[in-house]
Design a protein around this nucleic acid. Structure first.
Lengths: 218, 218
DNA sequence: GGACTGTATCAACACTGTGTCGAGAAGTTC
DNA sequence: GAACTTCTCGACACAGTGTTGATACAGTCC
């Protein structure tokens, strides 16, 4: 965060090739190296030296660009989360237009697609959040809160217009459903055992959502 | 595991107080220290030295009893999991006798109760599983598989006798529901945001389970 | 009661990884 | 070409892990 904003060479419009690579390039190289390594091995097995070497610099020089290994990972995770969250408005529109099943399908598919391409980054994010790291926890809290708010609103809307029956408080139901999605998709993404097959996740989750929201118990 | 079984002084029935504390006592002291510290701070902030000091021994002596910090934690986690899983038969009986709602209530309450008393240990277990650690992953896989099997059988039984409608394959539904429980209860236990209040977890989860199993979509 | 054996203990070491400091090189600005 | 900013890294200090080898102590066996 503030890590990434320290070196700001601004518009360095050099026409001749520089003997020395620019700071921006170095920063990018570090991020790319981290991204690549994360798909190969867990965060705990990647050292600052690995990142520095991968970016063609020495370890102390690494610290010129980022305050720590975690800061690099946070930058990557933040960008991925941003990309994944970006399409929210679009989804809400679909939900309103095309009805619950199609809307949910689109929402979950969007999310899953965003994370599917970078399982290593997802795992690293989870590691960070588990191990302490306030920033990571806050980031994920915000993301989860956002989704919970959306789902809560959706459930209340459906209940108000009589499409869904009453039941547990909307927000509580929303929390359970959103957390289910997180866990189930994470397990599938990382190939845990047991976990759902990649091509079954959406069907199963959507079914539970619809039954939980629109079905009535017993 | 093999760590805990190395020092086996057997029956050391001394009548006079020993100038030196016995190996068993040391081992217990290490486990107790770890258990205590885990409720104070995350695993990552506990060093082998902390455990050794807590047990009144030097760091090298620690390695006489356990091969690593993780081995200590694994021992503690295993015992907790064992205690939590122990009551399964009893639960299955309740389920058969008292019907789905009461059976589920009992099952989830049992689980939650077992883990509720040691949030630090639960967190440490999750940390271990996240960070690598094959043993921890295998342990949790076994536990999850056990629950998934039980729930799968239960769903199939209910469908066969006509109490529950057809739907997604029983095992896949079971996976989603079991993983939802894991996530939701973990979040509550550790006081994440967002998460359900401790006294609301069971109500909400049971509702989703019943609707997912007995309700029909749309 | 002395040699023998297994259990237990720890100072000292080797190693891996983190993060900092200070000296200086390389490019930019005036 | 002096001053300034950006960038680089060798050398250091530190924290933690895990190992080695010497040693102590407690119970035998004879």
């Amino acid at each position: 965060m503030e890590a990434a904003s320290k070196p700001r060479p601004g518009a360095n419009g050099r026409g001749r090739r520089a003997t020395r690579v620019s700071g921006d390039d170095r920063e990018r190289a570090i991020l790319e190296t981290a991204g690549r390594l994360l798909e190969e091995k867990p965060l705990s097995e990647i050292s600052v030296d690995d990142l520095a070497k991968g970016a063609g610099i020495s370890r102390p020089t690494f610290y010129f660009y980022f305050p720590s290994k975690d800061a690099v990972v946070m930058t990557i995770v933040e960008r991925l989360v941003e990309a994944a969250t970006g399409s929210r408005d679009e989804v809400l529109a679909t939900l309103a237009e095309a009805g619950p099943r199609a809307g949910l399908e689109k929402a979950l598919e969007n999310l899953y697609a965003a994370f599917r391409s970078r399982p290593g980054v997802v795992r690293a994010g989870a590691d960070l959040r588990a191990t302490n790291h306030r920033e990571a926890q806050e980031l994920w809290t915000q993301v989860m809160e956002g989704w919970v708010d959306d789902v809560t609103a959706m459930i209340e809307f459906e209940r108000d217009r009589g499409a869904a029956p009453a039941g547990q408080p909307a927000r509580e139901l929303a929390i359970a459903l959103v957390q289910m999605n997180e866990r189930v998709q994470y397990a599938t993404l990382l190939g845990e055992t047991p976990s759902l097959e990649g091509d079954r996740v959406l069907d199963v989750l959507i079914d539970v959502w619809l039954r939980a929201i629109y079905g009535s118990a017993e």
